[in-house]
Structures are given as C-alpha cells and as structure tokens.
C-alpha cells in the first residue's frame, strides 16, 4: 500500500425502515470500517445474509447509507447523487455476480460496452469502436463479439464482457460482487487469471466480495470476514485462512472442503472436534 488508500469506509451503517410504525429499523450493516489501497485486492467474505453485497452496493451508491462515510481518494462520496455520482463512474466500476442478468438481453454487446464511453461524449464514435475492439481482444473474446447479443455467449464469456465493461474507462477501483460464483471451476480460474492480469496492467484495486474462502486465499492480499453485518476478523488472507482467530472464521475455514481426500478427512475430524467443544 502506498499513498492514500483508494477507498476508505469509515463506520458504515445501513438500516432499512421496517414495516409497522413503532418497530425499530432493520440493521443490515453496523460500524464497518476498512481501507482498500492502490492496486490492492481486499476480500469481503461472509455467508448469505452477512451484508457483504450491501457494503458493495453502498460504496457504489446503489443503496442509501444510514451512517458513516465512504471516501474515494480521500474525498467524501457517501451521499453524492445525480450528476456528481455519475461522474464517479470513471473511478469506480463493478462486476456483478450474475452474468446473465447484468447484461441487457435486448442490446448487442458492442452497444452495452459503448454506452458508458459515449456518455462521456468527449470521444468520437470511431474512436469508441476501436477502443471496444481492443477491450474485447484483451478479455479474450472474438472480434465479432460486439455485434452479437448476450444470449449467444456462455456464462464465462458473458462474465468476460462484464469485465470488459468494468475496465473500459480504466477505473481506480472495481467492486467485484461474487464475480465467479456462477461459473464452472475451470472458467472461474480463467476469469480470476484475467482479473489479476488486468490489475497488473491497469493498476486498479479490487474489493472482492465472495462467500468462498478458498478463492480468497488464492486471489486477495487482505481479507475481512463479515458476520451479521459486522466485521469479525481482519488480516492478511494467509493469516485469516491458516490461523483464524474468531470463532466464526474458524468455523468457516473448517467447513470449506478441500480437493484432497486424505487432507479433507483430517480437516473434517478437526471440524467435528471444534463443533463438539463449542
């Protein structure tokens, strides 16, 4: 980490009003603070309902923030709306979990990719076309991909399109919300390789949201473990995975099966002992 962090999240809270007049609001995120340095990959790990996706959406401005601050390059962007928020799209981008839902089925891929570039309106159309051809080549898609519709691509290819859209304007930070969990393992490995390759050439930082600790260990430098909307453990991915301190992290680590029958047998034994003692 060098210089100011790209992203600082400070005491973030997200609450939804609950139904009924007197009932207190439902707290989804409470007092979450972390930083993402330049060109760093930070993983946000948790199970369903832990609030990991909500944090990503709050940073992207898709979910209203009830408390705390979100800073991009030291500048407060927590409550930006309208034009000022849209201007941020050159700095923050996202890759969503479901590559089937995140691309508009009614638009050819080239149009989907061109939209954010044309929204800048400083570029000429021919320039945009060349840029898209270059992007598609970079993410390993055929050149005629721009004229085809999302339904004509496989899940892995669609996720490559989504990645191309995210890196199109060379953002400083990309929120990756379970970008590979809908993919097959071999496709996942290729997508992760592509992400790290792009990180090295573009120098962007990733906030990598996932439920899969095994992916985290191979992909992220630092890891935050989230439970019921709070961060329960934080540290280098190796520390969190190999020497988990919090009871919940220990349970998570112990439950993740490894592709090695003998090792898995001993890990299972350890998990059952852990469960017996708690």
């Amino acid at each position: 980490m060098t210089g100011t962090p790209v992203l600082q999240v400070d005491g973030l809270a997200v609450r939804y009003p609950s139904r009924g007049l007197r009932k207190p609001p439902i707290t989804v995120i409470e007092d979450v603070s972390f930083e993402v340095g330049q060109a760093e990959t930070v993983a946000l790990v948790g199970e369903s309902g832990s609030g990991k996706t909500t944090i990503g959406r709050a940073v992207l401005g898709l979910t209203p923030v009830s408390g705390g601050r979100v800073l991009l390059d030291g500048r407060d962007i927590t409550h930006l709306t309208g034009r000022a928020r849209r201007a941020l799209s050159t700095d923050i981008q996202a890759i969503f979990q479901n590559p089937y839902g995140s691309l508009n089925p009614a638009l050819p891929v080239g149009r989907t990719l061109a939209e954010p570039l044309l929204a800048d309106s400083t570029r000429a159309r021919s320039e945009v076309r060349d840029h898209i051809a270059d992007l598609l080549r970079r993410v390993g898609l055929p050149e005629d991909a721009a004229d085809r519709y999302p339904a004509q691509f496989s899940g892995g290819q669609r996720q490559r399109i989504a990645i191309a859209r995210a890196v199109a304007r060379q953002p400083r930070l990309i929120i990756c919300d379970e970008p590979t969990s809908a993919l097959d393992v071999t496709t996942q490995a290729a997508a992760l390789d592509l992400l790290s390759e792009l990180q090295q050439s573009l120098g962007c930082a990733y906030l990598f949201i996932t439920h899969d600790l095994a992916v985290v260990k191979e992909f992220a430098a630092r890891t935050l473990v989230l439970q019921h909307g709070r961060i329960v453990e934080e540290g280098s991915s190796t520390d969190v995975c190999d020497r988990p301190k919090h009871e919940y992290t220990q349970r998570l680590v112990a439950s993740a099966p490894v592709p090695d029958p003998v090792l898995q047998r001993s890990r299972r034994q350890r998990r059952l002992e852990l469960e017996a003692t708690s």
């Binding site: 898709l62 479901n98 089925p105 939209e115 954010p116 929204a119």
Partner: peptide, 12 residues
C-alpha cells in the same frame, strides 16, 4: 441487474 450495471456505468 443490468439496470444497476447501467447506473454504475454512469448513465443518467
């Protein structure tokens, strides 16, 4: 999701 994606892309 593609509407969220469009918002993140900076479309008005």
């Amino acid at each position: 999701l593609f509407v969220d994606a469009a918002k993140v892309s900076g479309l008005g």
